[in-house]
Computed example of a mutant assay.
Amino acid sequence: MSDLVVIVYPTLEKAEAVRSELLELQKEYLITLDDAVIATKTDDGKIKLHQMVNTTAAGAASGSFWGLLVGMIFLMPVVGVVIGAASGALGGLLADFGINDKFMKDLAESIQPGNAALFVLIREMTGDKVLEHMKGTGGVVLKTSLDNEKEAALRAAISGPAA
Rank of each mutant, 00 (worst) to 15 (best):
K135Y: 07
D106T: 13
I47Q: 05
G91W: 02
S62N: 10
L121I: 04
D147P: 11
K129H: 12
K143C: 08
A61K: 03
I7Q: 06
E16A: 13
G139M: 00
E24G: 06
M72K: 10
T144C: 10
I83K: 04
S62F: 14
V6G: 03
N54E: 10
G59C: 01
V82A: 15
G67A: 04
K150M: 14
G84N: 01
A58D: 05
L23P: 03
A58K: 11
D3Y: 10
T42E: 08
Q51M: 10
T126M: 11
M52N: 10
L93F: 14
G88P: 06
A86P: 00
D3S: 15
S62R: 07
V82M: 12
K46A: 10
L33S: 08
L49E: 01
A95T: 15
K150S: 15
S2K: 12
L154G: 11
G114I: 08
L118C: 00
F103T: 13
A57L: 14
G59W: 00
A163Y: 12
V5R: 01
Q26D: 06
P10G: 09
M72V: 11
P113M: 07
K48A: 10
D106L: 11
L118T: 02
G160R: 09
L75H: 13
L4T: 12
S159I: 08
I83W: 03
H50F: 03
F97E: 06
V120L: 05
Y29V: 09
A85F: 01
A15K: 03
V130C: 08
K46S: 09
T56F: 04
Q26M: 13
R155G: 09
V6R: 04
K135E: 15
